[in-house]
Amino acid sequence: MSRLIRPGDWLVLLGGAVLTGWLAWQLWGQGQARSVTIRAGGQRVASLSLLHNRLVPVRGPLGVTVVEIAGGKARIKQDPSPRQYCVHQGWLSRAGQVAICLPNATSIELTGPDQPYDSLNF
């Protein structure tokens, strides 16, 4: 009656394979972060596990930056910088993600089991 696998079937199969590959790349390729490194004025202030929910105040030239760690994610909760870029970045959850508050010279960087890229050091 008809050929076993019709042309459209190959298309659907290809679509499924691409979807599977994309999911694997998206969810397995980029490592989930395990810890966060907090820096102030270029100095490493702390390296903390993301498993422990806590608020960390970090002192900078303008005032106090508050780093929040909750549910395996981290963010800059409060910052005295005028433009609030790092606060608006919101929650970070993947290894290699960075939020930098330039005016206050503070930053957080998420680290995982393996570092996919290094964006802070040249």
Partner: peptide, 28 residues
């Protein structure tokens, strides 16, 4: 739970293909 999604997707790809071919054969 998202960590397991690619494994589930791969299983769906394989089982979907095999079951579809079997059904096709039976219907033929």
């Amino acid at each position: 739970i998202l960590y397991f999604v690619p494994a589930f997707a791969l299983a769906a790809l394989l089982s979907g293909l095999v079951n579809g071919i079997i059904a096709d054969k039976l219907l033929e």
